[in-house]
Design a protein around this nucleic acid. Structure first.
Lengths: 106, 106
DNA sequence: ATGCTATTTCCATATCTATCGAAATTGGGT
DNA sequence: ACCCAATTTCGATAGATATGGAAATAGCAT
């Protein structure tokens, strides 16, 4: 993963509203969630939500799929994995880091 | 970890210059690196560097220690671990994510 | 005390971001 | 064709961020 891309993804997640949004999509699992449903959970105007969502999609952290008039959004796990992997690689260049990461997965 | 704190750390890392800066500190290991040395590697004005560094310190990703006139900076591994752990927890609520994270550690 | 080096703070500014109401669009149903 | 619901785009604004030159500060050495 390129540093630029990692930074873009980190920045995308580095906003409380978007991180919350991403969390919601992760918890929704493979079924995903319609934009409207997400809006119900976040209670923000649709235009604001759309902007945030676009950011997550553009950086590859979320995918979208049309189903009739609704747009289903899903957390893109591989994208997140790549990002976590990048961070782990950067961090775990020093061995002192590895145990705690292992713990996080346990 | 609170969502707000995670978002702040992600935002801090979500800037190419700061991510590069953090990388440099990680690779420097436990010895850390003086601000001046970092500046030599990044080739940016000291005031700009100082701002970015402050951001990383404020969010708990970097620590600093005075040694005479120079300031030694170190990547704060536990801080990064907590962040990676948070992301992994959010992401790996779904099992489909776990294998790739494991791979990143291998 | 003076000077030297390292680093930060002050200040200014250009750019980017977050927010959201209103209007436009998209994609079926009827 | 028309309408309705879902979602996006447009346009505007307040505030945050990134950047860096210049001045201030910190901490030793002499």
């Amino acid at each position: 993963m390129k540093l630029e891309k990692a930074a873009a993804q980190l920045e995308a997640l580095g906003n409380p509203t978007r991180l919350q949004l991403y969390r919601i999509l992760v918890r929704a699992g493979d079924d995903g969630l319609a934009v409207g449903s997400v809006q119900g959970k976040l209670d923000i105007p649709s235009s604001t939500l759309s902007h945030h969502l676009k950011r997550l999609v553009d950086t590859g952290l979320v995918t979208q799929e049309r189903q009739a008039t609704t747009l289903i959004c899903r957390a893109n796990y591989p994208g997140m994995n790549a990002l976590i992997g990048y961070l782990a690689d950067e961090c775990c260049a020093d061995a002192a880091c590895a145990p705690a990461v292992g713990k996080a997965l346990a």
